[in-house]
């Protein structure tokens, strides 16, 4: 796998096929849309379907009697504790997915033309902290009496969101910079999500959980700096 961009025979744009483009535009100008209107019908229909739709799923009820008791006690503290549980489920799924993304990224860097051992070290460090965060969230889900093995609705949705990064990083043809860009997206969102989760834990009456999560946020801030720095170093280095 090669680094960065290269000039070549990209044939996707109209400049690569001027005669065909002329013919195509001629057809477009002669044969007009048969259905009048614009995108407003599509938007109306989407809105209507959203109003009719059922939800993606539910936050599971605590499974054990012990869990139920603890959960009931904690539930008394917040107005809607299932919201915190759902978001904790999301973070667990996200961090777990993050471990796998960094595993894939390490393989990518090792397979590049000029493997950067320092970058591999950095990625391994971040990967190990993502693993810690994943276990931290799992533990706290248990202290709330809930089941960390359940996939909550937000965990499910964030899995859909992560598919783009996963597809980008695991494609053998993508280069290190393209994949660092995927990790940047992941880390930016992760950062904001931890901030939100801490606020949510505090508002829900769980200061101990919030405190533990602040440590994770500090580490996430460091991840973001490391990813940005690695990207900048690589890209700027190639144009100067």
């Amino acid at each position: 796998m090669a680094h960065a961009a290269k000039l070549g025979t990209n044939v996707t744009g109209v400049q690569m096929s001027p005669k065909d483009t002329e013919s195509l535009l001629e057809a477009v100008n002669e044969i007009h849309p048969d259905v009048p209107g614009d995108t407003s019908g599509l938007m109306r229909e989407r809105a209507e379907r959203a109003s009719e739709a059922e939800r993606i799923g539910s936050v599971p009820l605590p499974g054990s009697a012990k869990g139920m008791l603890k959960s009931s006690m904690d539930m008394l503290r917040g107005k809607s504790p299932e919201i915190l549980l759902d978001k904790m489920g999301e973070r667990l799924a996200y961090e777990r997915n993050g471990v796998r993304l960094y595993d894939a990224m390490i393989a990518k860097v090792k397979g590049s033309d000029t493997p950067d051992s320092e970058l591999v070290g950095t990625l391994q460090h971040i990967r190990d902290e993502e693993y810690e965060h994943m276990m931290l969230v799992a533990r706290h889900i248990e202290t709330l009496g809930a089941d960390p093995t359940a996939q909550t609705p937000c965990a499910d949705v964030v899995g859909v969101l992560g598919m783009g990064a996963l597809q980008t990083i695991t494609d053998p043809r993508t280069n290190v910079e393209q994949c660092m860009n995927a990790l940047l997206t992941i880390e930016l969102a992760d950062n904001a999500a931890w901030e939100m989760l801490i606020e949510l834990a505090e508002a829900g009456g769980h200061p101990n959980i919030a405190q533990d999560f602040k440590h994770a946020l500090d580490q996430e801030n460091d991840h973001l700096v490391k990813v940005k720095t690695a990207m900048r170093r690589s890209l700027i280095g190639q144009v100067t």
């Binding site: 109209v14 690569m16 096929s17 013919s23 057809a27 477009v28 044969i31």
Partner: peptide, 8 residues
């Protein structure tokens, strides 16, 4: 890639 028309 320009080979095929996009009209109704």
């Amino acid at each position: 890639q320009g080979y095929t028309d996009i009209v109704p």
